[in-house]
Design a protein around this nucleic acid. Structure first.
Length: 277
DNA sequence: ACTACGTCCTGCTTGC
DNA sequence: TGCAAGCAGGACGTAG
């Protein structure tokens, strides 16, 4: 599932392949590919030169030599692929951009939770991304400030770190991994944690996502791939996600089995022995 | 202002 | 064996 490291992997791939290229043609192949707003056509980018590919949390956007930007969210299963023009269409191709270098930038999305949108920048951020908090990879991410903010929250800690308006980029996989690394149960009330515990948790989330980025992102069931069509290899290093029933990897002592519990209409994976209050 | 939950979607896995 | 239910889940809108 694309979370911060996977989206950053895609951003890096796009940056390498599309910056400096001009969009010659666009096509939208699925009604849900484009999120409805006032600027609801991809055709606006015809003839535009791509200047930059930026990101905040799990949101990405392309900047052009004109005011409009193309915002993209991968949702559950969104992918970007760079293909030679005219290559056979993928089964779930949702939008296509023909580029000036004989390539096509393709947006592919099986489950259609992902979307594209035409938007404008306000203070350097697309309006539809302005409510999203900074992510831990942001140079202006203020860890001490975030720790302080989290310490005031009355909600369960996992919900708090999944709240993209508090800290962005963390999804279900890295939330579970960070909580395991910090030894904190997901249902703990945030305000009942010490500042040190919260700091440890944010540090753990940052580290696990940095390691995942180094490995090219986590790929589960191969729905996530980067723009070259290659999968990430980080899943080998996951401690709890997808490991229910297997032995906890904490050393030297813990040998308990990882369990899966229902949490907020989703699932959480955790070690019942070493994630305790 | 805050929290909780339903909704969107497809395809693979599980269970009867 | 075959079909139906379950599961995966990010973000957002609405209900409470």
């Amino acid at each position: 599932m694309p979370e911060l490291p996977e989206v950053e992997t895609v951003r890096l791939g796009l940056e390498k392949h599309v910056v400096g290229k001009t969009v010659l043609a666009t096509s939208q192949l699925h009604p849900r590919a484009l999120r409805a707003n006032s600027l609801n056509t991809l055709r606006i980018f015809k003839g535009a030169k791509i200047k930059a590919v930026k990101r905040r949390g799990k949101f990405m956007w392309l900047e052009f030599d004109r005011p409009e930007v193309l915002v993209a969210h991968l949702g559950m299963s969104g992918q970007f692929k760079i293909q030679k023009a005219g290559t056979e269409q993928e089964a779930h191709l949702r939008a296509n951009f023909t580029l000036s270098n004989g390539r096509e930038m393709r947006f592919i999305d099986q489950r259609t939770f992902g979307w594209l949108a035409v938007d404008q920048l306000v203070a350097g951020i697309p309006t539809m991304v302005s409510h999203i908090a900074r992510d831990p990879f942001d140079p202006d991410f203020n860890k001490r400030e975030i720790v302080k903010e989290i310490s005031t929250k009355r909600g369960q800690i996992k919900k708090v770190i999944l709240d993209q308006e508090v800290i962005s980029g963390i999804g279900n996989i890295y939330a579970d991994e960070a909580l395991w690394r910090a030894g904190i149960p997901p249902e703990t009330i945030a305000s009942e944690l010490s500042s040190t515990q919260i700091l440890n948790l944010i540090t753990a989330a940052t580290k696990v996502m940095q390691r995942a980025l180094s490995a090219g992102g986590t790929s589960f069931d191969e729905l996530y791939i980067n723009v070259n069509g290659e999968s990430g290899y980080f899943e080998r290093s996951l401690a709890v996600y997808g490991r229910e029933g297997e032995a906890c990897r904490r050393r030297p002592r813990c040998r308990a089995k990882i369990i899966r519990i229902a949490f907020a209409n989703r699932s959480s994976r955790l070690c019942p022995a070493c994630q305790t209050r």
